[in-house]
């Protein structure tokens, strides 16, 4: 009922800001507030583009999906960008798809300022997403243990064998 200017609730912008964005904070926010593109996180490495299509089409026609790839291996590494034709459809996605399951995993969606070439690659040192470097739990759908922990485990077993 109030005269809110900024979107609130499920369609509000989150705290996260892409550090690689070219431009200042104001510009970035302007893009985020009008964007029809969403970042989608916590996907299984095995989830296909077609599955993402199916779920995300439930809130409107999907224009494009760009799968996030491991920089080195060029295989899916657990995130993607989904672009809709309209802002309204993307908003409904934030409202009704964010936090529900795809391939048995609770996925997360967030506003994205729009896809730029290069952003489809993981930014971790080993090629995947940064979060998969430091993770300490075992997540089978995301390559098992985090990369750091996994290499530690490998080294330990190399020594002991």
């Amino acid at each position: 009922m109030s005269k809110r200017k900024l979107p609130s609730g499920s369609v509000a912008l989150s705290q996260y800001r892409d550090q690689h964005f070219r431009g200042n904070r104001g510009e970035q926010e302007k893009f985020l507030l009008t964007s029809t593109t969403l970042y989608v996180g916590n996907l299984s490495f095995f989830t296909s583009e077609a599955q993402i299509y199916e779920l995300f089409s439930r809130t409107g026609d999907v224009k494009k999906i760009i799968m996030g790839l491991d920089k080195v291996q060029k295989t899916p590494c657990g995130f993607c960008f989904v672009e809709y034709y309209t802002r309204a459809d993307a908003e409904n996605c934030m409202r009704y798809v964010n936090g529900t399951r795809l391939d048995d995993r609770i996925i997360r969606t967030d506003w994205d300022a729009g896809f730029k070439e290069g952003r489809q690659y993981g930014r971790g040192k080993t090629g995947g997403q940064v979060r998969d470097e430091y993770r300490t739990d075992f997540d089978e759908a995301r390559g098992g243990y985090g990369k750091m922990l996994a290499s530690k485990i490998r080294r330990t077993s190399d020594i002991s064998s």
Partner: peptide, 11 residues
């Protein structure tokens, strides 16, 4: 309302 509203609210 949009159909998926019902599905996600049931969840």
């Amino acid at each position: 309302y949009i159909e998926i509203f019902y599905g996600s609210t049931f969840i």
